[in-house]
Amino acid sequence: MNAAEPQGRRPHRLTVGRIGVYAFLATSALFFLLPLWIMVMTSLKPMEEIRLGNILALPAAMTFEAWTKAWSSACTGLECNGISVGFWNSVRILIPSVILSIIAGAVNGYALSFWRVKGANVMFGILLLGAFIPYQVFLYPLVRIFSLTGVYNSLLCIVVVHVIFGLPTMTLLFRNYYAGLPLELFKAARIDGGGFWSIFFRVILPMSTPIIVVAAILQVTGIWNDFIFGLTFAGRQNLPMTVQLNNIVNSTQGERAYNVDMAATMLAALVPLVVYFVSGRWFVRGIAAGAVKG
């Protein structure tokens, strides 16, 4: 973000307008932070205090027990190891899925924007419509397809599923980004005798950093938070962290420890949060490069 300079006016003094700007931002921030406040407060209270129902109050007897419990000792069935159990499974699903779906998106986007292939745009249109269908509709037929091919319930299977469902978004992102790149670069490379792949690797890919970061952020959020695909396709040995999270927060008939629920949810969101924070500047600049130019 620092890299791209703000375009607004730059007053030097604290004027009424400046105060107004900060007042607006602070008020909005309060609205956005409200549920977080409730969650943090709840996570720091013992259950007796939560039952009283003063959701906005500061804890009378503050305790971090719920946090440690959520991470490492809450029961999620027979095992009582908190949500930390699935952390590495989630990482193992996340990394190949993000990388592969970005590669697929980049290659598709490149082929769609610079090369004329018959029917490619029709294919893309259908893909785009697919982004609007609730995933759950796909589950049953996909299970049948995967069990026929013998990869059902494996790491490979869940990665392939994430790549498949990332295709519309990723293709769209890259296609639009590439369409905004100056065509002269591509022409020059063609005159130099570059082929499909050599132009992609030598010319196009080096220029794709911002959009790759954008794509990575979107995919990290989506895949990290996925529950239903992981549950259906990953197999028991690979269940992601969200399955443990769901086990903690979503029991139908069991008693509920809201403090642990809240702590677990915040812990589970840490990875995407860190990704947002670290790559914020790229995130914004990448989208700008992809969708504003041209």
Binding site: S28, T221, L245, V249, A269, L273, F277
Partner: peptide, 17 residues
């Protein structure tokens, strides 16, 4: 980050809040 954080959290529990 404040305006963006809700996007990262599972709704199962933020919905309770």
């Amino acid at each position: 980050t404040i305006f963006l954080y809700p996007f990262s959290m599972s709704f199962v529990v933020t919905g309770v809040a």
